[in-house]
Amino acid sequence: MIKIIPGEWRERFPRLIDEMHKLRRSVFYERLRWQVTIINRWEVDGYDALNPLYVLSLDEHERVIGGLRLPPTTGFNMLNDTFPQLLPDGARIQSPLIWESSRFTVRMTGDRAVDFPVISRATAELGMALNEIGKAAALTHIVTVYDAAMHRMLRRVGCAGEPLGPPQMISGVETYAVIYEIGTRWDPHVRGLAGCASVPLDPEVVVSLRSRLGLADQTFSTGGVRR
């Protein structure tokens, strides 16, 4: 199930926000050993302080198994302000119709047989949610920065983005800036992995998001989810 939490509402969802930051710590700090900041057992940075939109994938016990965050590209964001070497010609990409996805994470145990179905489902669900949010917010594209390992993993699931250019080595990691076009019809393979035809969204946020984003009623299903 997908839960969408605007950053400015983090106090209303303390458990989920806590789980997300701890999941990010275990993935980015403990497993990938990125140079990220840990504060009070959370991986958290300045872009979190700017209240991005958090998109979380929850399991049947409502535990966070994956997530990402979306800031607009008009303000401060990772591609423009952390990884400008990935910008074509070094020119900032900033449009109200292009948002950035960053800190994409999925829970992993290291056991591929256990991980693959979880990763596939959470990733497919998050990908479809991004597309629906993008449509509702009248966006044209989502841009994101990730490493070559992530690119390969997403390609296996059918969710890889389109590189804006050749990858660059950043701190010893092969890194891509990629785009997703909104409105892309997800192939049946991805929908199969997500286990649903439309994105199952937590009913609690549906009412508010419908009005905030002008969502059409059929955009998100809240019942009849095939598991």
Partner: peptide, 17 residues
Amino acid sequence: GISPHTVRFHLESARAR
């Protein structure tokens, strides 16, 4: 040698610029 999705991305970025 790029996809039409990427073409539209560049056009939108230029529009905003």
